[in-house]
Simulated assay, not measured.
Amino acid sequence: MFSLASRVAVITGGNGGIGLGIATGLAKAGAHVVIAARDAAKSESALRALSAIDLEAMAIQTDVTDEHAVTELVRQIERRHGRLDILVNNAGITIRAPAQDLSLAEWNDVICTNLSSTFLCARAAYPLMKRSGGKIINIGSMLSIFGASFSAAYGASKGGILQLTKSLAVAWAPDNIQVNAVLPGWIDTDLTRAGRTQIPGLHEQVLARTPAGRWGTPDDLEGVAVFLASAASNYITGAAIPVDGGFSSSI
């Protein structure tokens, strides 16, 4: 039920953090993994780690904010594998600043990288997935449902991902494509480590609010990704699943 043998999965931003954790989990379940990211050197490092699990793992240097680059990404996957079964839209950035201090260029950069790329990749993957069904997993955030004074653009992009997930789920259900979102809590990555230096008291606040009593790690995302990518979730679409140690259930 949870086997991904012979399935082909592309993970945007899959060369580090949550993306690499998900890529690792999918590879362990038998999927052939494609990492799509801008940093070629970082992708090669991730690929070396994945190759011990998936001999057919590959990395494609891609700017997921570029419509033509995304189209070419899907074409390369089709030429190599002839199919695309799983898309994980994980690529993302953040700029931590009060809304009044954000420039329009900074706002657009975050929205384009996080939200527009999710749309571009899903749209490009649709024709291949329509052939035999598929799974799209969009990576949201706690800020898909909560507000934060320091992340207006990031929160807007992640809230948009949640609504886009629901719209695509409804639109593509007749094509046997399930579209769901994962909402990570505070996961220990390079992105959040930077936040701990920028936001005084963040580490202590997270621990106090999280019933599990710890920050998450990228491998905490492996299980939910395998579930949503596998036949076990065939009747689940348009859902948003928190992976947050209880953060969203706590007051």
Rank of each mutant, 00 (worst) to 15 (best):
A225I: 09
V243G: 05
D101P: 01
V8C: 10
L73E: 03
N176P: 01
S116G: 05
A49V: 09
E78R: 11
S144R: 07
K28Y: 04
D220V: 12
A9P: 12
A91G: 12
F150N: 07
P184R: 00
M129E: 00
G14P: 12
V70S: 11
V206G: 10
S144Y: 02
L84R: 07
L115I: 02
A181W: 00
A208I: 00
A148F: 14
A156Y: 02
Y126P: 02
T165E: 02
L183E: 00
A173I: 08
R83W: 08
V243N: 10
S6V: 01
A97T: 14
N176I: 00
A231S: 13
F150S: 12
E106D: 15
I22L: 10
R131N: 01
E204W: 06
N90K: 10
S117Y: 09
S132M: 06
I177Q: 04
N180S: 10
K166R: 15
E78I: 04
S3G: 12
N15I: 02
Q163C: 06
H32S: 14
I137E: 05
V34F: 07
P174S: 06
G14S: 12
E72R: 14
G16L: 01
S141G: 06
L183D: 00
A169R: 08
T71L: 13
Q61R: 15
I53W: 02
I187N: 03
T65G: 14
A240H: 05
D39K: 12
S3E: 09
W186L: 00
I111P: 10
L104W: 01
A125E: 04
G133C: 02
D175P: 13
K28I: 03
G147R: 03
D188H: 11
I111K: 07
M58T: 13
A105K: 11
I251K: 14
S6Y: 08
S43M: 15
A156R: 03
Q205P: 06
L26D: 01
V70A: 09
Q205S: 14
T217D: 15
H68D: 14
P98L: 10
H81C: 15
A239Q: 14
I18C: 05
A153F: 11
C121M: 08
A212P: 09
H68S: 14
T197P: 07
Y126V: 07
V70T: 13
L4M: 03
T65D: 05
H81P: 08
G17L: 11
R80I: 05
A105V: 15
S132P: 02
N114A: 05
I199Q: 03
L143H: 14
L50P: 06
I251A: 14
R214E: 13
H81G: 10
A122E: 02
A91T: 04
A27I: 05
G238C: 10
L191N: 07
I95G: 00
V243K: 08
K28E: 13
P184G: 03
N176Q: 12
A23K: 08
I251Y: 04
D175Q: 15
S248Q: 03
Q198D: 15
Q76W: 01
R123N: 11
N114C: 14
T192R: 12
A181R: 03
A212C: 13
I18L: 15
A225N: 12
L221V: 11
A148T: 10
R193K: 15
G92A: 04
G245W: 01
S6L: 07
S149H: 08
W215A: 13
P200K: 09
G185N: 09
